[in-house]
Each structure stands twice: as C-alpha cells, then as structure tokens.
Amino acid sequence: MIDKRVATLADAVAGIGDEATVLIGGFGDSGVPVELVHALLDQGARDLTVVTNNAGSGERDVAALIRERRVRKIVCSYPRSAGSIWFEELWRAGEIELELVPQGTLSERMRAAGAGLGGFFTPTGADTLLAEGKEVRVLGGRRQVFEEPLPGDVALVKAHRADRWGNLVYRTAARNFGPTMATAAALTVVQVEEFVELGELDPEAVVTPGIYVDRVVAVRAP
C-alpha cells in the first residue's frame, strides 16, 4: 500500500539535515510553499543552500529563513525586490553567499538533475559576467556555456490537489518551478490545499506523477 500523505507539517519536514540543499518553489508570492518553509524554520536545520527564484520578501518564508541566519548560500535568478531587505542586509554584510543564475538556466539545471543528465550547453549567458569561469564552446555557430545539473537533497513544492500516490495538479501560475523541482530532489515534499481519492484526478491532467513525490501534507487555503 502506498500512502505518501503525512499528518502534520512537522512530519513533512522531518529529517531534513544541516547543510542540505533545499529547492523551494515559487515566483514572487505565487506558488510559494509558505507553510512548509515555516515548518522548516521551526524544524531547525541550518547552513542550508536554498535554490529558489527570488530571495524572499518582507518577513515571510524564504526571507524569514534568511533573517534567522539559516541560509549559508542562495542560488537564484532575481534576489532583488521591493521587500528583499533581509537578503540585501546579509549580502552586504558578507553573511550569505549568492550564486546568480539566469532563470531559464536555473530551471534547466534542475531539469538536468531530474533527467539524469551530466549538464548541458546553452547560449544563455555567453559573453556575460555569469559565464565567468565556465567552459564555452562554439556549437551550431553560437558560443555556448556549459552548465551543471543542480540537484536538491529536498524540494519543497506547493500544488493544488494530491491523491495518496502523490499525483499532483496545480493551480494557475502557481505551478511555476514545482514540477521541475519535484523531479530534481532526493526527497520531494509537497503541500496541497486538499487530498482527493485515488482515481479522482483526471489522468490526462496530472502534471506531476506521484513517482516524483515522497510526502504530501494538506494545508487549507487561508
């Protein structure tokens, strides 16, 4: 019997260790697994490497992790926003490392990890600061940069509905990085708004098949 549902947020983030690489879904405030990130904050893991598109805003989710000095390094495409005060403060103080990655390369590096690839060449970033120190080859007449896969120890993802096998559907643009991150981590933890019975999700519409998912917890929409 397969049942990936867990009862509490604490169960969902149990066992995440210090120095883990944590992939966290979301784009701006859309699709962020806020409750899972707060559970990770309560759980206590530290010296984390966080992979996420933005560096958090205000006092919530990723910003709170950074504020509490739990993040040693952040890998992201756009750490700056109107409310990214905690990231900026620690970055200026040299207390957090930033690896800046073009957004499509960030996503594709996680896809490569999920697909078992050893990396890929892309023209994105060629002849820019973000290609410094990386191998460049001319392929198909274009200068292309070698990018390595970006696997996670853990992925924290927000979806809309799940069944006990961990099949997932998402809602509108909240889907963003979720399906790719789910494939790229050793442990994929998902929060959903509701559970449904096995067979209730239209198999033609399942976005993330349960094979990629390890734990699912239900968090009611606020």
Partner: peptide
C-alpha cells in the same frame, strides 16, 4: 546592489 538577472538573458538570446 546585489545583482539580479531574472529571465533577461534567456529572452535576449532565444
């Protein structure tokens, strides 16, 4: 200021 690139490079190249 911390650098931020988003999707600018992907779009310009692709």
């Amino acid at each position: 200021m911390p650098p931020a690139v988003g999707g600018a490079m992907d779009l310009a190249v692709g």
